[in-house]
Amino acid sequence: MAMMTLLQAINNALDQQLTNDPTVVSYGEDAGFEGGVFRVTAGLQAKHGEARVFDTPIAESAIVGSAVGMAIAGMKPVVELQFSGFMFPAYNQIVVHLARFRNRSRSSYSLPLVVRMPYGGGVRALEHHSESLETLFAHIPGLKLVIPSTPYDAKGLLTAAIKDPDPVIFFEPKKYYRAGKQEVPEEEYIVEIGKANVLQEGTDITLVSWGAALRDTQKALQNLKENISIELIDLRTIAPMDSVTVVESVKKTGRLLVVSEQVKTLSIASELIARVNEEAFLYLEAPPVRVGGYDITIPLPRGEHHQALNDKKILRAVRSLAGYEV
């Protein structure tokens, strides 16, 4: 076991898969020589060679489109998009090809590739560097979307994503790239895609979150003085969504709170709440609650705190939901 940051755990998973599987390649803008703007892939080109770990011209559509071709030809590309806010030129390839190739070829082709991208706010970044665009991927049949919140899960989920026979979008919570270390096994392991993780059992409220928002939530809960028993669930995979774990939990607690960085309308929280309504409506003791952003463009840093999660927003929702009486 070694103590690793989330960033190191991702680097470690990539390094291991590049070593173990000769079909794995890793590329993106500045992702070769320099190791990416966040240095997630640092050292990989020196170790595995420029043919398998390389810099691309600036063209997100070319990065993902070429990955489609490589995957068809038997490689396993793990490509990096510099920021999720820059993925839009690649979105065409992602929606019209990545998500559909298996289905339209009746599974004669599969695309076992991974598209990595840092996402989320709270780092006082420039315009287009703070988005939480989960819905744009989770909405598209054929795509998987995975978001780790811890170093352990980051390695295990990325390893699973690389081994997955289908395309996986891998969101990396950049706010927590280097914040905090955790013991991570040196050997290969996977964390199963499509399985939520019950981090803490509880009886009063089911609190679901993922990625950076989950870490924010854990931090906020440390300041919760009241005696409220919270079942904390890390969703980990957004698509396909493990609503069974959430529904079973809500049947026990009767109350659901979803915390995310997304804007409110058509967020992942909306879908979770819909499923809970469908499957556990009669168990509910209070209307489900979403905490997250408003339906606005993410403000630049001087105003970002109005949109970002904070302890007060989260705790207020916890208290109000716990105290709700019909």
Partner: peptide, 11 residues
């Protein structure tokens, strides 16, 4: 340069 990527790797 495009960040770290030299002009020769661009075109």
């Amino acid at each position: 340069y495009a960040i770290s990527t030299p002009r020769a790797k661009q075109t």
